[in-house]
Amino acid sequence: MRLNASSPWIPLALSGDIPNGTVIPATLCSKPIAIWRSQSGQVNANGNRCPHRGMRLSHGFVRGETLSCIYHGWRFGQDGACQHIPAHPDVVPPASINCGPLQVAEQDGVIWVAEDQVESQPPRLDGLKPLRSLVFCAEPEAILTASGGTEVDLGVEATLAGTRICLLLQGQAPAETLCLVLVDQATSPKACAEISRALEGIRRRAEGETEKRGAA
């Protein structure tokens, strides 16, 4: 499967999974990154490595409009630039000390990250709303097979519990795929619950398939 062939934007999380004042780890083209949302609601993404001594920033905390490293409290702004070094409180850090900011866009309830500067907007997901994200210990091909759906640019379209769903797939590591699940906008909460349960079944089948192939 060739995922996401036509867009530089990679879908990496659902908006609802990152409320204000939180940070999560993610993987962008097998590179660890941190995605965080400031107290005012602004989403940001950067490398998941503090430029000071290499601590994962996804273990840190969001205070106001800044992300702090849990190790020594180095504080970074939305442009990725270091704003404060607690061990040397009088220093005004230069913008060149930064945690590798990435371009990020939030659209249709999905958070998209791009490796390089891009002018375009992420693809629209018309008529769909986000449901949940799952990680499959399986390759995208196995997920396609298990879902009984058809391949589209960003992953798979399928029908589950009588509803149109879209699985945005992103390989994170060998046999590890992030799956952002979108459902038809009109789906009722009851149907959403049903789809969520059915997804667990697709995951079992896809992982069973991957295991079989691995053993062969």
Partner: peptide, 12 residues
């Protein structure tokens, strides 16, 4: 714990 957004929110 990286793959579990709902667990993350509950723990938070």
């Amino acid at each position: 714990l990286d793959p579990y957004p709902s667990i993350r929110l509950w723990m938070r």
